[in-house]
Amino acid sequence: MRFEGTAHRYGRDIDTDVIIPARYLNTSDPDELAAHCLEDLDSEFVSKVQPGDILVAEENFGCGSSREHAPIAIKHAGVAAVVAKSFARIFYRNAINTGLPIFESPEAVDGIRSGDRVAIDADAGVITNLTTGESWNAQPFPPFIREIIERGGLVAYAREKVSRR
């Protein structure tokens, strides 16, 4: 898996309430959720983000509520991957289960600014800032997690495993 896109960088403790406020949980439609992604933090995010872009944030990304709508909203807004200094626990699992690639690398986050072009080689675990030429190592996914993400989430992955039996 390889991703390349423009970085959108935010601070620490980006909680799931600002990723998708509870007042929009009156639907399970991914595209409607995506239309409100991060609007309380940056009302222009949804209009700025292009398919394939990379969300970059500091510590404790995704803290707060267990709402799986958060990774779904991010993914359907067009974000290809999230790079953060660290992730909150429930969000980490939810991102994998919904097929949103996430990478932990404090150094990369420090070396990326909004607007930089960023490439991620998920198999090798290398994040490159194409604008500055710097690159960093991130922990690559173990093979089974990579497979879950490639299939688009845990349900599709499990369904495929079951049907192959």
Binding site: S66, I90, N97, T98, G153, V155
Partner: peptide
């Protein structure tokens, strides 16, 4: 729900998960 950890006060290992984990 993330506040499922509340019952830890009752000596229950309880923890919040997302909907897909919950469904499983």
């Amino acid at each position: 729900d993330s506040h499922t950890c509340t019952y830890g006060a009752l000596n229950v290992f309880s923890t919040g998960v997302g909907s897909t984990d919950g469904a499983a």
